[in-house]
Amino acid sequence: MVMIRYPRHFDVSFFRPVRELEEMRRRMDRLFDEVAGRHPFGALFSGVYPSLNLSEDGSNLYIRAELAGVKPEDLEISIERNTLDIRGERQAENVEGASYHRRERQTGRFHKAVTLPYEIDSERTVSELKNGVLTIVLPKAEAAKPKKIGIKTS
């Protein structure tokens, strides 16, 4: 006699293969990075506060950093040639007679220098601190912008 047994938990709605695979890939990546002593976000990770994301499009470079609790007046950004300098301080909340139950939010000074991959136009650089996220928009210098090269036909 042949008995066919179905797995008890066979319910398609709970099974999301793509998601499961994605999750597994992420875990594997992380594991390899840990073994190799690298940070999950790549070998370029600097380990200096604040953590930055650097991205680009055709005309600008963008630098973003999460700086919750840093007031705009406590932040200083400067550019010298192709080095961007971010320094500042995150101050502690001073409350008279408070007793702490938990204190996980760090305070202190920071200073980070970033070497920019392109020449930029420092005159037109703008920065914004919104909801604790700093965004710096650095327009690329004319020489660094991508150019389309026409092909002559004869």
Partner: peptide, 22 residues
């Protein structure tokens, strides 16, 4: 998120770091 929780005579305060949240 990282939090601070502190207590004074009259109240309890919770501070939560949530960068990027409006």
């Amino acid at each position: 998120p990282a939090v601070d929780i502190f207590e004074t005579t009259n109240d309890m305060t919770v501070m939560v770091d949530m960068p990027g949240v409006a």
